[in-house]
Write a protein that binds this DNA or RNA. Structure first.
Lengths: 185, 185
DNA sequence: CATTTATAGTTTCGATTCGATACTTTAATT
DNA sequence: AATTAAAGTATCGAATCGAAACTATAAATG
């Protein structure tokens, strides 16, 4: 009695997140999509900072992304550099101004809300959500995006880590960035 | 090690939900907003089925809602009736066609994903999410929407229930509908 | 009771987003 | 060498969405 079903809760959560993001965006004087782009570019690793990745991550076409990026670049929030190896691709990075714009919008309602839960329950919630997301991912078996360290290909070492997919060495900072090849463990 | 933080998970969950909703909408030949409107109207109780509620629920202006409703009505998915008591307000209901359009789009990826969790863990997840959402709600102390039965004003009786806010009697069916005055227990 | 204010909703207008398509350039494949 | 694939841009049009003005009704205030 008096309990909401899991789908209902997920729905409510989703709406709450949207609400927060909209609030944060208008508070910083930008559009939700633009804020989402800045947020992604802050966290994306060096194999995931191309326009194409933004399109996949946000579910937009590359044409739309290209246009939005033009605006972000005009305002000096995003820098584009041609890639050294493949001259078709463009590397995107946040400028200082972009980073401060993003931080101004950074929202902590969820952090505060989460602190109302005791630490052990937070931990349990994290674990359960991880498994739920992982199941969803398998159900949809679509490519997803996530933080490198939480990927099933992530190999933790003592001093340095490694990507089991590319074999590449990963610094501590690398491990905290978003990767397009991510697969939740 | 190898754990995603709670904010990261919430973010991923939110994107996954958006993805699902978009998929469901285009699959049914309608726009995400339209699908969201139909879904809300199916579940809204008799005090929450006005255009204004839709605007609040979806975070749109009433102008936008009015325009989208016009389309939904033209297609025969939504019915509008003037309210008996207050002649300013319009009561919205789903037509049969609207209901079938909605059911065609009804998506079960989450249901399936949730079934990968054992029942006791689903229950635990539900409980934790409820508390997290409740905390968020208090943090933002904004009006929210939720199913009547899960409201702190809901008074459960043996044969019939009651709303502690309006004092009104609530049928079993009433208790399962979305109310604009909802406050998570 | 008259006047003012608030509320629900519609309409119009314009800005902006977003997708579809065609196109350019470069890389990969055959 | 020729073909195909991929990354990105540009252009165009449709449609969303918000802002503001407007109508009609209800509530509040004097």
């Amino acid at each position: 009695m008096n309990t909401a079903s899991l789908p209902q809760l997920l729905n409510a959560l989703s709406r709450a997140m949207l609400f927060e993001q909209r609030q944060a965006a208008v508070g910083a004087g930008l559009l939700p999509v633009q804020l989402a782009m800045l947020g992604y570019l802050r966290d994306a690793n060096r194999y995931s900072n191309m326009p194409q990745c933004l399109a996949e991550y946000l579910g937009l076409t590359k044409g739309t992304v290209s246009q939005s990026l033009k605006i972000l670049e005009e305002r000096g929030w995003v820098l584009r550099q041609p890639d050294g190896a493949d001259r078709r691709v463009v590397r995107l990075t946040l400028s200082e101004a972009g980073l401060t714009a993003l931080e101004r919008a950074d929202d902590d309602a969820w952090r505060i809300a989460a602190q109302h839960l005791p630490a052990n329950e937070r931990e349990r919630l994290r674990s359960l959500l991880t498994r739920l997301l992982s199941s969803w991912q398998q159900e949809r078996n679509g490519k997803t995006f996530g933080v490198c360290r939480t990927c099933r290909h992530f190999r933790q070492g003592e001093s340095s880590h490694q990507c089991g997919l590319t074999g590449e060495a990963l610094s501590e900072a690398d491990s905290e960035q978003i990767c397009r090849e991510h697969n939740l463990a």
